[in-house]
Amino acid sequence: MNLTITRRHRLYRGHRARSLNITEEELVEVRARERTFDGAYWRTAMKAFSMGMIILRLFTRSFYKIGIVFVAFGMTILGIAVLRRKAAGDVFDQRQPFQTAGFWVMITTLITTIAYIVLLILIVRL
């Protein structure tokens, strides 16, 4: 019997999120995800944003382009963070195989290298 019921709540293992009892392994998994996505990607984006904000607000006008580079870098990292979180799969659904983050690491490395090179050029020509 194929029931397609539209529910207000998303169900995890058949239970709503508030009444779900998380096992120890799932808790470890959730913690690892939060470390990665909130603690690494999101934090990097926030740091770049705030650094760009500091440069744009406090520094002299000759540093304007450097601040813009920081803000653009932060936005790109934020987009990568969102896409990476979507691609990471579900904690409560262990059926699909795990895929390592090599692709995302390569993309992040390329973008960061480009940002660094632009920053280097801007600083040397300052």
Binding site: L11, R13, G14, H15, R16, S19, T23
Partner: peptide
């Protein structure tokens, strides 16, 4: 509740 095999919303889950 902790049974990971329990994968669907049954009637017992409505009485949670």
């Amino acid at each position: 509740h902790n049974n990971p095999v329990d994968n669907h919303a049954s009637k017992s889950s409505d009485s949670i």
